[in-house]
Design a protein around this nucleic acid. Structure first.
Lengths: 356, 356
DNA sequence: TCTTGATTTGAGAGCGCTCTCAAGTAGAGT
DNA sequence: ACTCTACTTGAGAGCGCTCTCAAATCAAGA
């Protein structure tokens, strides 16, 4: 059945008694072929197990159908945080369903950054990119713009509004989280924020506007910063404890884990002594004790939509909008104290508030 | 400086007053070029920002310098488990330092399996593969063998001994873990095992041989199975509790997390009522409470070495050995009870026993 | 000066595919 | 029967690079 010898279009054509061009038409599903010929060619293809050489095709058509995913060096969190695996999963689904190939570019150091750019740009290998960096001082974006490489950014961008991007609604998410704490009656609501990237900024913005909308003023002493690691959450919380907050909105579940450890060491009970709300709704949120009230973002969908968007761009028809911002939802579990009065702590119990 | 127009070898040659072939030689660092000519060509390259077209090069040289990483559908754990991110990180480092490009093939369903195979095999796109599956009923390996696609497997294989692979020493690791519990004097040492893949088998083997070497017999009632998820660990432990074990060797940290939750719900204290040892030494191990005694495997190094091995294979010189098995180490923390009598529970305190 | 052999360059034939263009073949309309 | 407009096919020119081969150049030995 399957003959191992690598065949070419030409040879398949010879076997079917037609020209290379005709075989190419069959392979690519073009119209205007006499059914019997199409069938004959198809049979030869099936019998020989012919597969077109992708490199030759790409070279001739000036289209590789390979898209790249760039994960910048800033993201050391790759190990710790299920965020990237989830996102990659979504992107991979998108890639598969669009018959593309995914090239993964992980940048491990500033030095590799240059190398990566060079190996992507102007080599014809990559049709387009998905860039996950939303670090503020990013060097990639301007470079991509300059070289006119089509790309979609995951997250928010400091650059032009013309950049295609898909993001989750960080502002709304942290607004909800904060408002939830306010509505539960907490008075001294602190936050562990991040100022390294745009989503960090947005989450802080949401926190602030919830305060503003409730006629409250943000107390700078109740704002500390971390960097998305467990440790940074731990240390931030240590800093916070002397300020005696009665609730903390921690802008990532991973940091929340560290924060709760600090709380535990200080013999403060969650949520009785201090309420905690996280962000991300990644597995650690459920594994935590008590389980974390947190903001869930559709990470996998983000990746999938980014691919769809890129595909549209590559195919020439501009997507309707340059920006997609996906809604998030608040997942209420035990750590915020809202369920304190409820029946019992059934392991899977949770309430959900849809945004938008 | 950098002219955006996409140049070809031919055009660079014209600018430098030499032929395409000569430019090619300069680009690829061949000898036998008059220094002044080399310099002149190099200057034109620098000034124009010429980059060779990788597709054309690949087609002409029959070598794409792209290697694929296959993550099979079995591995839904991708989200939960930092294992894959770590491994990918190592592979990515290897890829970068060998000037390759990494293509990521995630298979999300059995249906996609076929599609993936077809898009990899016989298309000329991929020079070689790294396959992470060690699922027993794997369909990839035989297919790769049949098509003579060079590949390195991460993990153990049921197939031929001729398969190139790199693995960690699962047998030694679980032997150490089990022996450690035995030497601490525990009498009823249970295990939460896995029988889905080879590493699961190996870890169970190690558990058994530690028993054998100490003249003990494995009690079947103290052996239950999970599937590497938190939930399965939870349920497995539920099953185990009625058997009254005084120690449990759980063959993954992720399952250990679930197991410890079950223990907590049953009001059993770790390690006082029951000792726990995990496997993997992933971040959850440290985040657990108490911190987990566990077996650490060099995951990132595994990935890196797999790439090195593949590069050797592709370059034609057969690697000295078909198999690399990396040593693992036991990391002693609080959950096994060994540190119970020691000074205090300093957060980073841990002892380490090197294997091999 | 003439060989000999090494070094340095260019010409040209592909790699396997896409895609345009023109030639050939039918079917419909008059 | 004859034109006109589809539809169907093949020829051939690339895509940008590698790599072989032979021509050209040059240094050194006889």
């Amino acid at each position: 059945m399957e003959i191992m010898k690598k065949l070419t279009l030409e040879e398949v054509g010879k076997l079917a008694g037609v020209s290379r061009a005709t075989v190419s038409r069959v392979v690519n599903g073009y119209p205007h072929i006499r059914p019997e010929i199409r069938e004959r060619v198809q049979r030869v293809i099936d019998e020989t197990g012919y597969r077109p050489n992708l490199l030759a095709r790409s070279l001739a058509s000036d289209r590789s159908n390979i898209i790249g995913l760039v994960i910048p060096s800033g993201a050391q969190a790759v190990f710790t945080d299920p965020y990237f695996p989830c996102l990659t999963q979504g992107i991979s689904r998108g890639v598969n369903s669009n018959n593309l190939t995914l090239a993964l570019f992980m940048v491990h150091s500033a030095k590799e950054e240059e190398r990566t750019i060079l190996s992507i740009l102007g080599t014809g290998l990559i049709d387009g990119l998905i860039v996950t960096s939303d670090n503020k001082g990013d060097v990639f974006i301007p470079e991509l713009l300059k070289h006119e490489m089509p790309f979609v950014q995951i997250g928010r961008s400091l650059y032009s509004d013309k950049i295609y991007r898909v993001d989750t609604d960080n502002i709304a998410g942290s607004y909800m989280a904060t408002q939830h704490l306010i509505s539960l009656g907490y008075q001294r609501i602190a936050t562990i924020a991040t100022n390294r990237n745009c989503s960090g900024d947005d989450r802080f913005t949401g926190y602030c506007s919830a305060f503003a909308d409730h006629g409250k003023v943000v107390d700078r002493k109740l704002v500390v910063y971390g960097d998305y690691t467990v440790d940074s959450g731990y240390h931030a919380m240590k800093q916070l404890i002397p300020q005696r907050p009665d609730a903390v909105f921690i802008t990532s579940d991973t940091m929340a884990l560290g924060g709760m450890r600090a709380l535990q060491e200080a013999n403060l009970r969650v949520p009785d002594d201090i309420a905690v709300v996280g962000y991300d709704d990644l597995p650690p949120a459920v594994q935590a004790n008590p389980q974390l009230t947190t903001v869930r973002q559709p990470i996998e969908q983000t990746g999938f939509l980014a691919v769809s968007m890129l595909v549209k761009i590559l195919s020439g028809d501009d997507p309707p909008s340059h920006q997609i911002v996906l809604p998030v939802e608040l997942v209420v579990r035990a750590s915020c104290g809202a369920t304190r009065l409820k029946s019992t702590s059934h392991p899977i119990q949770e309430d959900t508030y849809q945004a938008n």
